[in-house]
């Protein structure tokens, strides 16, 4: 599938009157099932950009704006060719072993409630792959249309768009399976929107994607951009919560 992406972010620096230094994770990488035909990042002011990699192996763009600005509009544009691999991730850039992705983080702390939920979800599942599908389906069934219930389970006031993926990571880790958060884009009927899902590691298969928002594995509609222990590590704009991104629109050309 050929997916055209145009994604715009308006970034408002929290420190007024200072030079802007930001780290962006907005560039998809090539893998066996994802080919970036072309990609560019533009900003609407005088800026310098440098590309590099973070510790998790994700492509990052450092954005340097010397003159203080009220807001900067960042636009990522490109075409990506994808093929359906039933969620299996092949040929991705890996810097860390799966065992690292068993650790919890501030956004994905081990919790008795989530552990119990995960155990219940996989009660009739046999083997890690079936357990992960069971967990994914259970999260989708229970929470995809009920943010309140998710917030309750996570003991937070409000569940955000990345909490389903967080929930999947915490649940899979509680089952002893490495899991991570993935940020990227998903192609809809008319446009490609920013999206997030999760991946878990299954021995002998490798990393497999699970999208609790749809209750299925990602298909060729998903464009993978960055993966990390949680949303903060894979954030398109470092230090900014997912929900703060304004506006979340993308247009298919």
């Amino acid at each position: 599938m050929r997916i055209a992406i145009e994604h715009q972010i308006v970034h408002r620096p929290t420190l007024r009157g200072k030079a802007v230094v930001q780290m962006l994770r907005l560039t998809p990488d090539n893998s066996d099932d994802q080919t970036v035909v072309h990609w560019r990042i533009d900003v609407d002011c005088d800026a310098r950009m440098r590309s590099g990699r973070d510790g998790f192996g994700n492509a990052v763009t450092m954005l340097y704006i010397e003159e203080p600005v009220e807001a900067v509009t960042i636009t990522a544009t490109g075409d990506v060719l994808t093929s359906d691999a039933h969620g299996i991730v092949r040929g991705s850039n890996e810097t860390l072993p799966p065992a690292l992705y068993l650790r919890g983080t501030a956004a994905t702390p081990a919790s008795e409630a989530v552990t119990a939920f995960a155990a219940e979800a996989v009660r009739h599942c046999d083997g890690p792959l079936a357990m992960l599908h069971g967990l994914n389906a259970a999260i989708h069934r229970r929470f995809a249309n009920d943010g309140k219930a998710a917030a309750e389970l996570l003991s937070v006031e409000e569940a955000g768009p990345c909490d389903l993926a967080h929930l999947f990571c915490t649940g899979a880790r509680s089952l002893g399976l490495p899991a991570r958060f993935v940020s990227g884009f998903v192609a809809g009927e008319h446009d490609a929107r920013p999206h997030c899902w999760a991946e878990a590691y299954v021995a002998e298969i490798g990393w497999v994607g699970f999208d609790p928002a749809i209750g299925l594995s990602p298909t060729d509609t998903h464009v993978r951009v960055a993966a990390a222990l949680d949303a903060a590590g894979a954030a398109p704009v470092a230090g900014e919560a997912w929900g703060d991104l304004v506006p979340l629109t993308g247009e298919t050309q």
């Binding site: 973070d54 510790g55 998790f56 192996g57 860390l96 072993p97 065992a99 068993l102």
Partner: peptide
């Protein structure tokens, strides 16, 4: 034992490979 490293908050994945 790998979990001694990977489960340890002092192992910082943020700078792996640097």
């Amino acid at each position: 034992p790998p979990d001694l490293i990977f489960g340890n908050p002092q192992f910082r994945p943020e700078i792996a490979g640097m």
